[in-house]
């Protein structure tokens, strides 16, 4: 864990925040799909640093995009410019970047967090891409204009307040009746991941699912972030993921 200064924190809605940190060591090494662990409280309560995807890297700065869920993220949300946090990383395996696309990126809710950095990288390499981004409602769509500059975008909301009404997986199914991407990469709630897994599996498209698990170490020390493997045993999300090949994952065990 190394100290990092808060450059700024921006509230992006009721429960969403964008936290920008001065962390040159992390910024220099981070690749899309990797995560950092943050702790922003003195003492041992909460005990565990919280994992967050690297949302964006600019020079010596990294940012994370997060949703307030419990105590840790609530404490984070009170950070102001100049405050100090401890950061650990980058950790985990980067997302695969194929030479040829198109890559379809499927985001559910806050699962969009790692994709800005990823789409930027795909764009820089000239890999054709498309983002399917689903959220509950208009207010839950984050960084839309920035994302729209990086990639063609299909938005869905459950209440129809923006984009198409419905689930992002419905938009994916429909698009698959007309086109075939070279690869699918999804991040979002477990039910969405397992639906994407089934749809993409049936279509026979190489697919990666970015998983979540409670983590104590973020680097393979504790074996705590176990998720059942399809052919038995457990994979460790922090070192084998966060993005894991569809064939590795037991979809029934995700939800």
């Amino acid at each position: 864990m190394i100290p990092a200064k808060v450059i700024r924190q921006k509230r992006l809605g009721e429960e969403y925040f964008l936290l920008e940190l001065e962390a040159p060591e992390v910024a220099e090494k981070a690749l899309p799909g990797q995560f950092v662990r943050l702790s922003a409280w003195p003492g041992n309560d909460p005990l565990l640093p919280r994992p967050f995807s690297v949302h964006e890297v600019e020079g010596a700065r990294i940012s994370v995009l997060y949703q307030v869920r419990g105590r840790g993220t609530r404490i984070l949300s009170a950070l102001r410019r100049g405050d100090e946090v401890k950061v650990d990383g980058p950790l985990g395996r980067p997302f695969p970047v194929p030479d040829a696309g198109p890559v379809w990126v499927i985001a559910g809710g806050i699962g969009v967090a790692p994709f800005l950095f990823y789409l930027e990288t795909l764009k820089a390499r000239g890999v054709p891409r498309r983002l399917f981004y689903g959220a509950r409602s208009r207010g839950d769509l984050l960084r839309i204009s920035r994302l729209a500059r990086l990639s063609p975008l299909i938005v869905t909301t459950e209440d129809g307040s923006a984009g198409r009404r419905g689930l992002v997986t419905e938009a994916l199914s429909e698009a698959l009746t007309r086109e075939r991407p070279a690869m699918i990469l999804a991040c979002g709630p477990p039910a969405m991941l397992s639906a994407v897994g089934r749809i993409a599996g049936e279509a026979g498209i190489p697919t990666w699912l970015s998983l979540e698990a409670v983590m104590a170490c973020g680097r393979g020390l504790c074996l705590g972030c176990a998720v059942p493997r399809r052919d038995g045993g457990y994979l460790k999300v922090c070192v084998e993921g966060p993005a894991v090949g569809l064939r590795e994952v037991d979809l029934d065990a995700l939800t």
Partner: peptide
């Protein structure tokens, strides 16, 4: 040994 199914970790005040 395969170990136990998840959840394998939970946090408590100052504890794991």
């Amino acid at each position: 040994r395969e170990g136990n199914p998840p959840p394998r970790l939970s946090e408590t005040p100052c504890g794991l």
